[in-house]
Design a protein around this nucleic acid. Structure first.
Lengths: 119, 119
DNA sequence: CAGTATCCGTCATGATACTG
DNA sequence: CAGTATCATGACGGATACTG
């Protein structure tokens, strides 16, 4: 990761993406955005995620200060995750990218098709 | 990648990031942003990248329609890469994220320190 | 100059089973 | 319910050598 540090030096954007670039981070963030969400809810809402990866992703996001984890000492246990203000702000910034994606989804698909057709 | 497809369905943002999420994609994009750039220039400007990864990254970006590759049939060979309009637009959107990163760099560092201190 | 080919190690992810 | 532990694997990336 020494190289990543150098890249980050040259391009702080790369640093941002590190907090979001995990295979599941965005999915989890999106699923948690609509309010406090429990572990099992996330497991259902984020299609295809394994229990293990959900745990790892949640820990990473919590460590970066993007999620807050609240434990209710009940039986059975209840744990809720919610976005921090910082994460909500991030989410807003991501909408710019979302717009780009929607505008160019077709362009990208065509570009790929053309590229693959040519070879 | 079937799972990624499902995630993408739920969250188009994830689809965007796939075009940018590679370890070197952003660095290459940034290095190529200032105008047509040759292979060797990129190799120098993107700190730490290997020849192999540069090639793979360039091919991926080209396939997605983010870079244009121009070959001049001279001896020795000359190849130039430049951003497409679509990529420039993407780059603009990324500045939103960049702003977020700069505003919260300190917050994230503190969050991590606190998290690690607690354990 | 601008690549390609090959080998190999590491890491992220997945599957599965167990627990306070 | 909300995890943790362990093992296996496949993709990703690095090093090195070769080429039109």
């Amino acid at each position: 990761m020494a190289d990543t540090a150098q890249l980050t030096e040259a391009c702080p954007i790369a640093e941002v993406l590190d907090h979001v670039a995990g295979k599941w981070s965005i999915g989890v963030l999106v699923a948690a955005a609509h309010g406090p969400v429990r572990f099992t809810e996330l497991e259902r809402e984020v299609a295809g995620i394994s229990r293990r990866m959900l745990t790892l992703t949640l820990r990473k996001l919590e460590r970066d200060g993007l999620l807050v984890r609240t434990v209710y000492p009940t039986v059975p246990p209840k744990v809720e995750y919610s976005l921090t203000d910082m994460a909500r702000e991030l989410y807003t910034s991501l909408t710019g990218l979302l717009g780009w994606a929607e505008r160019h989804r077709g362009d990208i698909a065509r570009a790929r098709a053309a590229y693959d057709a040519a070879g």
